[in-house]
C-alpha cells in the first residue's frame, strides 16, 4: 500500500470498476459532493479501527463485572466509557458466549459488520461460502477454524443488517486468573469476536 493511496491515478492494468472509482472521485470532488479531506479522513478513520478495540472491550468485561453488565446492557455507552466511538452504529448488540451457548455472526445478504469497532471485515466474512454455510452448517464452519463443539452446546447464528451490528464476547479462558487486561486482550482474536472460534487459550508466541 503506497503512502498516498487515494491520490494516485488509475493504472491501465486496473479493472473496469477500479478505474471508474477514480473518475467518480474526481467528479464528486469537482461538484463539491465530498471533499478530498473527507476521503482522507475516512481512510484514516478505518485504519484506526482494528480488532484491538474489541479486544479491549472484552478484556475489560472479563475483569470488571460492573463494566460487563454495562457493556451488555448498553454497548455504545460502554464503548464511549473507554474512548471508542461507536456512534456510527445504529443498534449494537453484544452476544455473550457461555459453556452452553456459542454465538456466531454473519451477514448473509452482504457484509454488514461492526466496522466502527473492529475495522473492515476480513475477506472470508464477505465470501459467498461463509454467507451460504454459516446458517446451515455453523458447526462445520467452526470446525474449519479449529473449534470442535460437542453436540450439547447450542449454536446461535445472528444475521446482521444495515441497522443492527453484533459482536461476540468470547468466554474467558481457564487459567487466566490474575492476568492484566492488556495480556487478556491478546487472547481476544478478531475471529473470536465474530464467533467462529473461542478466545486463544494462551498468549500467542
Amino acid at each position: 500500500m503506497s503512502d498516498d493511496h487515494g491520490h494516485d491515478h488509475p493504472k491501465h492494468e486496473l479493472s473496469y470498476y477500479a478505474k471508474r472509482i477514480y473518475a467518480m472521485r474526481d467528479l464528486l470532488i469537482e461538484k463539491g459532493v465530498i471533499s478530498e479531506k473527507d476521503i482522507q479522513c475516512q481512510i484514516e478513520y478505518q485504519e484506526a479501527r482494528t480488532p484491538a478495540n474489541g479486544a479491549r472491550l472484552v478484556a475489560k468485561a472479563w475483569v470488571d463485572p460492573a463494566f460487563k453488565a454495562r457493556f451488555i446492557a448498553d454497548p455504545k455507552a460502554a464503548c464511549q466509557e473507554i474512548g471508542i466511538d461507536a456512534t456510527a452504529i445504529n443498534e449494537f448488540v453484544v452476544l455473550e458466549n457461555t459453556p452452553q451457548v456459542r454465538h456466531m455472526v454473519v451477514c448473509t445478504l452482504c457484509s454488514c459488520y461492526p466496522r466502527p469497532i473492529l475495522g473492515r471485515p476480513p475477506d472470508w466474512y464477505k465470501s459467498f461460502n461463509y454467507r451460504q454455510r454459516s446458517v446451515s452448517d455453523p458447526r462445520g464452519v467452526m470446525r474449519e477454524f479449529g473449534l470442535e463443539l460437542p453436540d450439547e452446546v447450542e449454536v446461535r447464528v445472528h444475521d446482521s443488517t444495515a441497522d443492527i451490528r453484533y459482536i461476540v464476547m468470547p468466554m474467558r479462558p481457564a487459567g487466566t486468573e490474575g492476568w492484566s487486561e492488556d495480556d487478556l486482550a491478546k487472547l481476544v482474536t478478531r475471529d473470536s469476536m465474530i464467533g467462529v472460534m473461542d478466545a486463544l487459550p494462551s498468549l500467542p508466541e
Binding site: 488509475p10 478505474k19 472509482i21 465530498i34 481512510i43 461463509y130 474449519e144
Partner: peptide, 24 residues
C-alpha cells in the same frame, strides 16, 4: 458452498479509495 478461505488479501489502493468514498 465450499470450504472457507481464511486468508485475507491486502487491499489495493482503489479498494481503499472505494471504501473511503462509500463511507464519506
Amino acid at each position: 458452498a465450499g470450504a472457507i478461505e481464511a486468508a485475507d488479501h491486502p487491499l489495493s489502493d482503489w479498494e481503499i479509495l472505494a471504501d473511503a468514498i462509500n463511507q464519506a
